[in-house]
Design a protein around this nucleic acid. Structure first.
Lengths: 126, 126, 126, 126
DNA sequence: GTGGTCTAGACCACC
DNA sequence: GTGGTCTAGACCACG
């Protein structure tokens, strides 16, 4: 998997956000080991230092912990992970509302469209 | 503006979607002239043939019309544009709900979070 | 001024501490402009990136603010600077007490030696 | 252990002070044998002549005695060692008070901060 | 092996 | 000019 990155944002933050997604979706659970800096560098096709910086920034936020000579691990602080999940959700909502607004939808229309969309889904499931 | 494209999807469809966004947001109104294939090719930094294909596909869908020797123009069929707008909105909603589901949010939670998010916005505006 | 750095600690933290000292001693006041990254790099004889990291870390702590295209400035948040001053003082005290302890002095002896040392100073001044 | 030395002071005096510290801390007791000049030279990574000069200066002060063919030994003159210990302590105190003064602390504040710092330590130990 | 630091040199965005 | 990012490649400390 070689990723394509946006020009508008630093690569290291984009990589960080990819990991945040993986963690909040449960692909990486509390205490799980992240791939090594070198592995991730090869995987996404960027320099080791850039990955290093992503990991550093994640550690600064407390989302991961690094153990010298062993690797980098998702924190076991579940409350912090829950706060992260809420933050990502808020971001999703913000971007979504902004996109819808640009398409000319007002809050009321948005709510009703989501409602019908979710009901359609439920009908499919039942 | 040089764009970065996903590997998972053909570039020409991605370019098409960019134009759809611009049209539905009103940056390009009914009857407006699109930039020439040549201009767009330079702008996004891809081959002219790829842009050509995007324009062809948009014409096939009736969203734009090409007039020999004059250029490519957004359709004046307002109903069709309205249907396009709704389609984009449905896509936005679908992707949004999927992302939220992957973050572990159920429909009820999503609705309440959107609600409070929109109220916060209103409070800011008032 | 080319500095000599300890091997036991990263250079970028040592540079940060030098600036903290300068700030807390008043050589650099609130709102003052720090030398540019490039100037400091030449001054202390290390790579630009290393200085960059020092400045970054200082900004992360809120001690300085960087303005793109303008430079790096000491924060005007005086309370934060006061907390920094207290932190540096606590570090000084800790290291001092540890050194004295290793020289075999107990707290009581330390206090009395400081007392007489300070009185000697006063006598000199008066 | 390779040391990093200050440019502002001769290396041989800095090496001497390292030995003074070791002696006053009890790492080297009265009558103990110092490592050979050759060993120390390798240990700190400087020229043998520089180490030689440190040993000479220490002998001049009476802190060590060299016996031809046997090596260099810490003096057994305990009173002299005690005076050395007090000298080092006075230096520590002087540097400490100067640093604190530069941070803007007056003697009274310094005393009270040390007091509370030492009490905190006692509480930890008890 | 792991992560952490540092260098040299490049290009970018902002003002 | 300023700070910010990225690369390539080196060396280190820890386990």
């Amino acid at each position: 998997m070689t990723h394509s990155f946006q020009h508008s944002q630093p690569i290291y933050t984009q990589i960080m956000e990819i990991f945040f997604q993986r963690i909040c979706r449960g692909e990486l659970g509390p205490g799980d080991k992240l791939p090594t800096v070198r592995e991730t560098a090869v995987e996404v096709g960027v320099n080791r230092n850039t990955i290093q910086r992503s990991y550093m920034e994640m550690e600064r936020r407390g989302v991961v912990e690094t153990r010298r000579g062993q690797g980098t691990f998702v924190t076991t602080d579940i409350e912090l992970l829950e706060r992260l999940r809420q933050e990502l959700a808020r971001n999703q909502i913000f971007l979504f509302l902004e996109n819808m607004r640009q398409l000319g939808y007002n809050p009321f229309e948005i709510m009703s469209m989501i409602n019908s969309s979710m009901q359609a889904k439920e009908d499919t499931n039942s």
